[in-house]
Design a protein around this nucleic acid. Structure first.
Lengths: 207, 207
DNA sequence: ACATATTTAAAACATGCGTTTAATTTAAAC
DNA sequence: GTTTAAATTAAACGCATGTTTTAAATATGT
C-alpha cells in the first residue's frame, strides 16, 4: 500500500470518529505510520486531504444512486418509501471501500455539513447536481401534494435526522442496548430511519 | 451589567454562531469588552463557561416544558402533534433571555450534541431527567403501537432533524429565498418542522 | 481611615496546530 | 554506473489556543 493510501485510510477512520477539525495531521500520520510532512507533500494541505477522503466515497455513491433512481421508471406509482429504498444498495456497496464504509460515509457527511456547511454543499452540488435534481424530481412525483419549497425543507430535515443519527450512532446503540436489551448494528440504523423519514415526508402540510 | 453577565452574553452569541470549539476566549472577551483572564477568574475554565451558557436556557426551558406537558392531562386523546406543540410556548418564552433566544438555544443544543455528545447528554439527563421521562410517557400514550425502543430511536431522529435545521437555518433560509421566493423567519422553521416530525413519529414501523 | 477581600489588568507560559524547509534516502532513466 | 527525479525524514517556523501568574485597582467592611 502506498503512502498516499495509508494516509487516506487513516484519515478516513479518524475523521469519521472525531470530525475533521478535531483530528490533527499528527494523529493521522502517526496512525498511518508515515511522516508528518508527507500529507502536505502528497495532498498539499489538510483541506485537500479532507476532499480526497470525501471524493473517494462520493464518486462511488452518487453514480450508484443515479442508477437506482433510474430504475424507478419501471414503477407506475412511486412512493417516498420506494425513493428512499434507492439509498440502500449504493450505501451498502461502500463496503468495497472499507469494512465500515457505509457508516463512515454517513458520519463524514454529517461532520462535513456541520463543520464546513457551505464548502461541501457547493462541491456536492456542482459535482453531483444532476443526481440531486433527479432525486428531487422523484420525490416530487411521489408527493405531488407538496410544493417545491415544502419538499426542500423536508429534505433537509431528513438530511439532519440521517446525519445526526449516524454521528450519534455509537452513543445511541449503547443506550438502546442498556435500556431496551436491543442489539443494533450501525448498518441497520437505516432500517429504523427509512420508515421515519418516509412518514415525515408524506405527512400533510403545516397547519 | 456585571463582567460575568457580559461574558455570558457575548459567549452565547458567538457560540450560537460558530460553535463551541471554533470560538476562542479571546473572541469572547474582546466582544464583551473585558479582560481575557476574567473568564477563568469568574468561571474557572472554558468548559464551565459553556455549561453556564447552556444552564441559563435549560433552567428556563425545561420547567416550562414540564408545565406544558402536564396540561395534556385535559385531553382525552393525545396526538404526537399535540405533544410537539407543547414545545412552542417554552421555546418562544426564551426571548426573555435574549432577543434571539429560541434560535440561539436550538443552535447551541445542536452544537453541544455534535461536539461533546456524551457530556451534555449526561448533564441533561441527570438535571432534567424527569421532564424527559414525562415527554416519553406522553409520546408513548400518543403512539401505543410503538415499542419503547422504537420510540427511543425516533425521538433521536427528531432531535437530529431539529438541531440540524437550526444549525443550517441561515443557509437554508437564503436558499429558500433565492430558489423559491419564500421568505422564512428563523422562528418559523418550527412551523415547517412540527408536521414533519409528527408524521415521522406516527409512521408505521419498519418493514 | 484603614485593612481586607474582591475584581481587573497585562504579560507570559506551555502546548498543539498546519505548514515549510533543507537534507537524506530511494527509485527511475539513460 | 552515473545522473536525475521522486519520496521520505527530522527539525523548525509562525501562529493561535486555554490557562496561570503577578501586580495594580477597586470595592467592602469595620
Amino acid at each position: 500500500m502506498t503512502t498516499k493510501d495509508k494516509i487516506v485510510n487513516a484519515a478516513e477512520a479518524l475523521f469519521a470518529e472525531h470530525g475533521f477539525e478535531q483530528t490533527s495531521l499528527r494523529q493521522i500520520t502517526s496512525e498511518a505510520g508515515v511522516n508528518l510532512a508527507s500529507v502536505n507533500y502528497h495532498f498539499g494541505s489538510k483541506k485537500a486531504l479532507i476532499q480526497a477522503v470525501m471524493a473517494r466515497y462520493l464518486s462511488r455513491f452518487m453514480p450508484a444512486l443515479a442508477r437506482q433512481l433510474q430504475s424507478l421508471e419501471n414503477y407506475q406509482q412511486v412512493t417516498s418509501r420506494a425513493v428512499f429504498d434507492c439509498f440502500r444498495q449504493p450505501l451498502m456497496a461502500l463496503t468495497d471501500v472499507s469494512r465500515q464504509g457505509p457508516a463512515n460515509f454517513l458520519r463524514l457527511l454529517g461532520f462535513a455539513y456541520s463543520e464546513i456547511q457551505g464548502h461541501l454543499r457547493k462541491y456536492t452540488m456542482t459535482e453531483f447536481g444532476t443526481v440531486i435534481e433527479q432525486l428531487l424530481q422523484w420525490l416530487h412525483r411521489a408527493n405531488p401534494q407538496l410544493s417545491d419549497a415544502e419538499l426542500f425543507w423536508r429534505l433537509h430535515f431528513i438530511l439532519g435526522a440521517t446525519v445526526f443519527a449516524q454521528v450519534s450512532s455509537q452513543a445511541l446503540i449503547e443506550i438502546a442496548a442498556a435500556d431496551f436489551d436491543e442489539q443494533v448494528d450501525p448498518e441497520h440504523i437505516i432500517d429504523k430511519l427509512i420508515p421515519f423519514i418516509a412518514g415525515g415526508l408524506d405527512s400533510s402540510a403545516a397547519g
